[in-house]
Simulated scan of single mutants.
Amino acid sequence: MVALSNSDMIAVLWEMIFRESDTVVILIEWILARMVLHPDVQSKVQEEVDMITERSQPVMESDVTNMVYLQTVVNEVLKLHCPSPLLV
C-alpha cells in the first residue's frame, strides 16, 4: 500500500470541500430530470407539497420532515445518480 504525502492528502481534502457544493446542484438537476421523465412522480410530489404547505404557503425547512414521498424520491435519485464517487 502506498502512503499519500501530506500535499496529496491536502489536495484530496480540498477537492472534497469544493466539490460538496456541486453535489447539491447536481442532485437537484437529476431530481428534476427524473421528474420530467416521470410525470406521475412529479404529480405525487406536488400533491404532497401542496397538502403539507396548504398550497399557497412557501415550503419551510420544518415541512420537509413531513414530506415522506419527496424524501423517497431524493433517496432513489441518489441511488441512481450518486453525485460524488466519494459518497458511495
Rank of each mutant, 00 (worst) to 15 (best):
I31T: 00
L86A: 15
Y69R: 12
V68I: 11
K44I: 06
D50L: 06
N75I: 04
W30F: 07
E15S: 02
P85V: 06
M51W: 06
K44P: 11
L80K: 11
H38P: 02
L78I: 06
A11Y: 03
A33R: 15
E48H: 07
M35R: 03
P85N: 10
E61S: 08
M51H: 12
I26S: 04
V12Q: 03
L27Y: 05
W14M: 12
V74F: 03
T53W: 03
Q42C: 09
V36E: 11
L80F: 14
R34M: 08
L27M: 14
I26Q: 01
W30D: 03
H81P: 00
V74W: 00
E20V: 01
M9T: 06
E20Q: 13
V64L: 05
M1V: 08
I17R: 15
W30E: 05
S84W: 03
C82W: 02
E54F: 01
Q57Y: 01
P39I: 06
V12H: 04
V25D: 06
L70E: 00
S5E: 03
E15R: 02
L87D: 04
A33L: 07
S5H: 09
Q57F: 01
L13H: 05
D22E: 13
L4T: 11
K79I: 08
T65H: 14
N75Q: 13
V68K: 15
R55Y: 13
R19K: 07
A3E: 01
S21N: 09
